[in-house]
Design a protein around this nucleic acid. Structure first.
Lengths: 222, 222
DNA sequence: ATACAAATTCTTGTATACAACTTTATTGAC
DNA sequence: GTCAATAAAGTTGTATACAAGAATTTGTAT
């Protein structure tokens, strides 16, 4: 235990946002949150500042915090950058993975296979994350891993959403297969390209999803 | 004016670190800083948390903050990631730059030329930054620009340091020239490669510098 | 003199009180 | 009835007080 309530609050508020209980654009009132969690405003403010730093909320001076509204444009951009970062990880992993790294990657890949076979989306989602983290680790570039992890975390809810799309799990697994093969063959460029394609597809699927949902602006009348 | 003292304090403390007045490993006492700047601990704490989010300081629960000690390994890693990000910017800029973007890039490039000719390192440093930001803008990828800018900001002091190395300004300018040519020719891969090389060289020069300085650990006896 | 233990001091984390600013509601004029 | 000005309410930013956990010092035993 860290002894800091603010850190726990950070996670709790983050959950509220990621689960959709707090929707983009919604105001985050400090006293409401404080009473809700049974603490004073001080740790709440600290948690909010951390969330603002990670981009999940917008903090407007003297005007409080709102859940960040990430427009489709920015979302696509984030997936693009994510694709580049993960591609770099894959490229490095192909060059520098140890046997133990490769074993880890294969293990998680196999776990993905099992989840896909069972059509267990939640399990696949979880193992997918572990698979990507294993590749990050194999790149042996800590700072790159940190940056990649941070962005992956931010895109988490959206990735989860788009895994629900028809046939996406099987496709995702096939794409993983290509990545794994390239890494085991120590083919850096192929690994990078396979990984980039894998993430880019996710971004595209996500924009498809957005287009199909496309909520009319300002639905809330007054 | 923002009305938030914490924001100003953030910049002031940052300055203390970047100018070297506060050295890596040094403890940042909240009350000392508070009395120093004539405010209470509250805004100081907020500033410290912001600085921690940007990685400039380490915040250890219940044990206070220290100026982040960025080891040579991590520093090299940061330059590597920076090289990749800037390379992506250059690639996109080669593809998507408008005439106005190109004019901006050329203008700053020329200003660099003037500074280099005058051997004015400080002016060159300033214009160099503007040059890179112009390329970021030409990529038309806001999120990528944000990430790149954030990392550039973090590497700022180290870049400045290494510009002082003999002949580095002229070399830097020559490398810029290659980047500009590739962008104007809309040769995306050449632009990416030229930019990557440009940044990687900086990282190498920096590690050279580190090796030559190499301070013995724990110089402060007790 | 050294090592360990207990107690004191110091520092951080949280709560509360107050001040400054924003927003909303009310009142009045047109 | 609409709009503007003004007053009231509510929210954020800052200061201060208090609680709890580290670090340091002091005392004792070996």
């Amino acid at each position: 235990m860290t002894g800091r309530r603010a850190d726990l609050l950070h996670d709790k508020i983050e959950d509220l946002i990621l689960t959709g209980e707090l929707v983009p654009g919604e105001r985050l009132d400090e006293v409401s949150l404080a009473t809700r969690f049974g603490v004073s405003r001080t740790p709440i403010r600290e948690a909010l500042m951390q969330l603002a730093a990670s981009g999940l909320i917008d903090l407007r001076p003297r005007r409080g915090a709102i859940v960040a509204e990430i427009g489709p444009k920015r979302m696509v951009e984030m997936f693009e950058v994510m694709a580049e970062l993960e591609a770099i990880c894959a490229r490095l992993a192909a060059r520098r993975a140890t046997e133990s790294d490769e074993a880890q990657i294969c293990a998680h890949h196999q776990a993905c296979a099992a989840a896909a076979a069972a059509s267990d989306e939640d399990a696949y989602y979880y193992e997918n994350e572990a698979f990507h983290e294993a590749i990050d680790a194999a790149a042996h570039q800590e700072f790159l891993s940190d940056q990649t992890r941070a962005l992956r975390r931010r895109l988490k809810p959206y990735r989860r959403l788009q895994l629900r799309a028809r046939g996406r799990v099987q496709n995702s697994f096939d794409e993983h297969e290509a990545v794994v093969r390239a890494i085991l063959a120590h083919d850096a460029e192929a690994a990078a390209e396979a990984m980039r394609a894998h993430i880019v597809v996710q971004g595209e699927r996500f924009t498809d999803l957005l287009a199909s949902l496309e909520t009319p602006r300002g639905a809330r009348a007054r």
